[in-house]
Simulated assay, not measured.
Amino acid sequence: MKGKVFFVLLFLMMNSYIGSAQQSMSDYSYIQVPETFEFLKGKDQHQVNSLTKFLFNKYGFNAYFENELPNVRKCDGLYAVVEGQPGFIYTRITVIVKDCNGVELFRSQEGKSKFKEYKKAYHQAVRRAFESFEELGVQQKEINLDDSSSTATTKNSEPVSEEITNTTSKEIVAAKGNMPTAKFSSYTYQGSSFLLRKTAAGYTLSQEVTGADELVLVGKLTMLKDGVQYTDSMGSMHEAFFDSDKNLSIKLPAGTKKFVLVKN
């Protein structure tokens, strides 16, 4: 009888903790991800930092690297810490979320991998650690800009192609307004997840391949004077466009593919 009571109390405590973490982290408008983790030797080594940022976005956070952050208040955001421990048998990863005062709000389960290749091991372990975030249902609110500063420019804004800037075409101006402005945007197509990354020339489109535990580049989007051009990994070029909801459509010989924007 005592054992049953213990498990019931444990279950209630866990549900209360998850609900509290969800509400608390949803009250913030962004999370900052380091570009370098202490257990790695260099900036975004093995693309672990990029994967971490991608997964935070996937699970309802507005994730930024420090140099991408708009003009925001420090305590409006959260701060990610990733602890890693490579080992002879297992590579272990734990993801921690803290507030601006260093108070720990959430600690993930330990993600483990037996892969011997560093990149595969880290990627699999990170993904397994992030399984803890899936059940939280975090939905961070729209990012709040700090109006106390006289500058309205943001760190993550990038120059748009001069061809588009100088054009007077109403159609191109409208298309420009439909384009995602975030550094990273998550999309889905037929149940698969994709990451759209903003660049100076346009965007890159990568697919989240769960079995391979990595992001695979599938194509690039270039902003032209008369529209958007998609170039796939084989070099074939196709017409593309963003609709008013910022969904991406690519016109292929076999039909149009529509990638739906995942809204936080």
Rank of each mutant, 00 (worst) to 15 (best):
S249L: 07
A125C: 02
H238Y: 15
E158I: 14
K141T: 11
H238P: 01
A129L: 07
S249D: 07
M234A: 09
D232I: 02
S233L: 10
L221H: 01
D226M: 06
D213C: 12
A174D: 14
M234D: 10
Y118E: 15
S192A: 08
F184W: 05
N156G: 15
T167E: 08
E158N: 08
Q124A: 13
M223A: 11
H238F: 15
E163K: 15
F130W: 04
Y122Q: 07
V173M: 13
T204Q: 10
L217E: 11
Q139I: 04
L145K: 11
L145A: 13
K120W: 03
G177C: 01
A201S: 12
S186G: 13
H123C: 09
I172W: 01
R197L: 07
E239Q: 13
Y230A: 04
L196T: 01
A212W: 02
S157V: 09
A200T: 08
S249G: 06
Q190F: 10
T204L: 08
N156M: 09
A152W: 08
A182G: 04
E208T: 02
G227P: 07
L195R: 10
R128Q: 14
S236V: 01
T210A: 13
G177Q: 05
Y203K: 01
R128A: 09
E208N: 12
S186T: 12
P159D: 11
I143P: 06
R197T: 13
T199G: 08
A201H: 09
E171P: 01
S206Q: 15
T151S: 14
V138T: 04
N156Q: 15
S161H: 04
K176W: 14
T154I: 06
G191H: 02
K251Q: 02
S157A: 12
E171G: 07
S244E: 11
D213P: 04
K183M: 09
S169R: 07
S150I: 07
E135T: 12
T204G: 04
T167K: 05
T151W: 10
E131D: 08
P159C: 09
A121Y: 06
M237S: 14
S249R: 05
G202M: 03
